[in-house]
Computed example of a mutant assay.
Amino acid sequence: MTGKRIVIFMGPPGSGKGTQAARLESKYALKQLSTGDMLRAAVTAGTELGVKAKSIMDAGALVPDEVMVGMISERIDQPDCAKGFILDGFPRTVPQAEALDAMLAAKGVAISAVIELRVEDRILFDRITKRVAEAGANVRADDNADTLRKRLEVYHQQTAPILPYYGTKGLLSVVDGTLPMDAVTRELEGILEER
């Protein structure tokens, strides 16, 4: 597993992490791994983890660390992650970051870059209002202003403290997530070209 490029996208819900990860996925042969997508797939499949996770996610709370790290550990051993991967939505707490570091170290790899997409809360509420209006009947159950408010509280209390954790390791870069989508992508590409 040497030579893998491992990138973590940080930022509040709705900041564009998933969209940007998808844009970089093919260019750099990095598999986008969204823990939210992994969990939603488990919910759809009705697995034991999925049933347990559904009630937790619907409440805007976090799934237990050991479940998430174990799921990621298994996933990154798959052939489509051979050249590396982008983690979107994980870690969300300092203990998760520490557990992720330990799991990666046991596999003989390390994080290449941590990129924060910075967006103010008020802009995120504008974005979700627009997304719900555009999605109509196809909107996700957890895609609404009340859930966003809860998720932002969790982000600011539990996830934002990870930023200094990675900053002290020299891994953190910040990108203005309010820039036009293509400009954000160019900024991200510049960071990846350096690492």
Rank of each mutant, 00 (worst) to 15 (best):
I128H: 01
S173G: 00
H156P: 05
R140C: 07
L171P: 04
R127S: 03
I128S: 02
T159P: 06
N144M: 03
G136L: 13
V174Y: 03
L124M: 02
A137K: 12
L172C: 06
D126Q: 06
R127Y: 02
Q157V: 12
T168V: 13
E134D: 14
V174I: 15
Y155H: 14
R149P: 10
F125L: 02
K130T: 09
D126C: 06
L152N: 06
E134T: 03
A141E: 15
G170F: 11
V139F: 00
R151A: 12
V175F: 10
V139C: 13
H156D: 11
V132H: 06
K169F: 08
E153L: 06
A135T: 07
T168I: 11
K169M: 13
A141W: 00
I162G: 06
I162K: 04
V139A: 12
A137T: 09
R151M: 10
T159D: 07
A141G: 10
L148T: 11
A141F: 10
A145Y: 00
P161H: 13
P164G: 05
A160L: 15
D143R: 10
D146P: 14
E134S: 02
T168E: 03
L163H: 15
R131C: 12
Y155W: 03
Q158K: 15
N144Q: 01
R131F: 07
L171R: 07
Q158E: 14
N138F: 01
E134N: 10
V174F: 05
G136R: 04
Y166A: 11
A135H: 04
V154I: 14
A145L: 08
P161K: 11
L163C: 13
D146W: 07
H156M: 07
V175M: 03
D143P: 03
Q157Y: 07
G170W: 09
N144Y: 07
L124F: 05
Q158L: 10
D142R: 07
N144P: 07
T168Y: 08
N138G: 13
T147K: 12
A145H: 11
A135E: 08
A137C: 00
V154M: 04
D126W: 01
T129H: 07
A137S: 14
L163E: 14
A133W: 00
